[in-house]
């Protein structure tokens, strides 16, 4: 049997021999190609099968950890110390803003205010004024450069989003969600109460001059005579 096979292989023509060799190598090549493809697909899969529930849970966990990691007090302190003072130098001057509101409150809003999305419009304003009167929550000033007007500076408890949104620097979409953004507003209000309120309550007596930068909600219209044109929450103040 072995001798006849040996004879057969020797006597076969060269073309048939090559074909037989190729046929013998084919399973090995196929196996090698399959293995290579398997290895490639293992490391570089064409697609991933992911459970939507798992994906949703992972995303919820990521959102929850982003929310948990957010510290409104730290974020407020950074904004208060770095971003807000830099922006205060660019705030609109009250002698320019006051007559603009008196002339056309809607145009003044368009020209000078900032708002987030379709939210409330706010002015970021700077100026100075002589203290005309004061009560538990407000100073009333005659602003330099617009003495016919009155503006109020809030010195009582601070509420709401005016300080957060007034400068137009903070974007809700940079924060984990609305609850965190609102917590930031509360932390900023606390900073105003701690850093600005005590100075004004102590030193801003009638007759003194207050230099300030602050935020105010844009009014719908110009106030009636004797009423404040703007109610400003001061973020910086100096009393002379």
């Amino acid at each position: 049997m072995a001798a006849s096979e040996q004879v057969g292989r020797v006597s076969a023509p060269p073309s048939n021999r090559r074909a037989a060799e190729r046929a013998g190598q084919r399973p090995a090549r196929l196996l090698a190609a399959t293995l290579t493809l398997a290895v490639l697909l293992y490391f570089f899969p064409l697609f991933h099968v992911v459970s939507l529930q798992t994906q949703a849970a992972a995303a919820a966990t990521a959102a929850a950890s982003a929310s948990a990691a957010f510290d409104p007090v730290t974020a407020a302190a950074k904004f208060w110390q770095i971003d807000l003072p830099a922006a205060a130098t660019r705030a609109v001057e009250l002698p320019a803003l006051a007559p603009a509101i008196r002339a056309n409150a809607e145009s003044a809003k368009t020209q000078f205010s900032k708002s987030a999305g379709l939210g409330t419009a706010y002015f970021f304003v700077r100026g100075s004024g002589k203290v005309l009167s004061r009560d538990r929550n407000y100073l009333r000033l005659a602003p330099a450069g617009a003495e016919s007007e009155i503006v109020a500076l809030r010195i009582g408890p601070i509420f709401g989003n005016t300080v957060r949104d007034g400068s137009g620097l903070l974007d809700v979409n940079s924060f984990p969600g609305l609850q965190e953004f609102n917590a930031l507003a509360a932390a900023l209000n606390a900073l105003v109460e701690k850093s600005v309120g005590p100075l004004l309550r102590e030193k801003a007596v009638v007759g003194t001059t207050v230099h300030f930068a602050g935020c105010a909600e844009a009014p719908e219209g110009a106030a009636e005579a004797g009423e404040p044109l703007l109610t400003i929450i001061p973020v910086q103040a100096e009393v002379l």
Binding site: G117, L118, G119, A121, V172, N173, G177, L178
Partner: peptide
């Protein structure tokens, strides 16, 4: 699109 748009 902004992710969140607040409305007054």
């Amino acid at each position: 699109f902004p992710q969140r748009t607040p409305v007054a």
